[in-house]
């Protein structure tokens, strides 16, 4: 990696001040994407602001919401009995991210700020209609994701927590890229009294997206059969050595049907 200045502030205001005034300053959350990027010299920050001492980790569960601090690790979410009870799909999703080491370092805030198109968390946030809280405002999931590696966050804006409404049922199924084990296709299904939301990650050139055709069908009939005949267009889906756009389109259907069957 290239040389940079390392800061580890204890106040959110200090962190945002450093990040706000320098376009080349970068925030370090769990570092599970950022550190490899630095090691490969693909990024040359002036300052790295470590968020570990800002007190942003922790999980709060109420009868209607689950709020997860931005610096909460995937392992903490996966291991939380309260999360597993309230939103089983979310705990399951966290338990399948990366490997053991990644889950004990990687954080929900880091994942969402990076918005890797193959990351798992964006599917949960979008499908559940979560609210992303930052140091300065609240952003709805539908407004937050703006294409791969692009979000509504402003320069220097830090995610502090994410609040998920508790659904009636949920589930997440991921078809892993055979090599990287990132989501080649990941489908999160969230069933609310008001309707069903379906989000797909890993598949699209523009990052996570809502599958409105599946949502409409499932909102009237929450069964795998309800979407069995709905073909997902391959237009705009990724194509690489592991999966063509057609294969990804097919897998979206398979993963969605299995996710519906597994929802609880």
């Amino acid at each position: 990696m290239y040389d940079f200045t390392y800061e580890k502030p204890t106040e959110i205001a200090s962190a945002t001040a450093i990040l706000g005034k320098d376009d080349e300053a970068k925030a370090l959350a769990g570092g599970q994407t950022f550190i490899p990027v630095l090691k490969q010299r693909l990024n040359k920050p002036t300052v790295v602001v470590d968020l570990a001492k800002l007190g942003l980790s922790g999980i709060t569960v109420t009868p209607t919401t689950v709020t997860i601090g931005a610096m909460t690790t995937h392992a903490a979410v996966a291991d939380s009995a309260e999360v597993a009870h309230a939103i089983p799909g979310l705990a399951h999703l966290a338990s399948m991210i990366g490997d053991w080491q990644v889950r004990h370092r990687g954080t929900i805030g880091g994942s969402l700020a990076n918005n890797d198109p193959s990351a798992c968390y964006p599917a949960a946030v979008l499908a559940l209609g979560a609210t992303i809280t930052t140091d300065r405002r609240s952003i709805s999931a539908d407004d937050y994701f703006q294409g791969m590696f692009t979000t509504a966050l402003e320069q220097g804006e830090l995610i502090t927590s994410v609040t998920f409404p508790v659904p009636v049922a949920s589930s997440y199924l991921k078809f892993k890229n055979p090599a990287s084990r990132y989501a080649m296709v990941g489908v999160f299904i969230a069933k609310f009294d008001t309707g069903v939301r379906v989000a797909v990650t890993g598949a699209s050139q523009s990052g996570v997206f809502r599958h409105t055709a599946f949502e409409a069908a499932l909102s009237t009939n929450f069964t795998a059969d309800a979407i069995a005949k709905i073909a997902t267009p391959a237009d705009g889906l990724n194509s690489d050595i592991h999966a063509s756009a057609d294969y990804r389109a097919h897998l979206i259907g398979v993963m969605a049907r299995r996710a519906v069957a597994a929802a609880k």
Binding site: P178, A179, S180, D240, I241, H242
Partner: peptide
């Protein structure tokens, strides 16, 4: 079942890391 060193038709190594080469 898994492994393949894949070159594209310009002889660039496409599966040049564990992100793409399936160990």
């Amino acid at each position: 079942l898994l492994e393949a060193a894949i070159y594209d038709d310009q002889a660039q190594l496409v599966s040049g890391s564990f992100m793409d080469y399936t160990m």
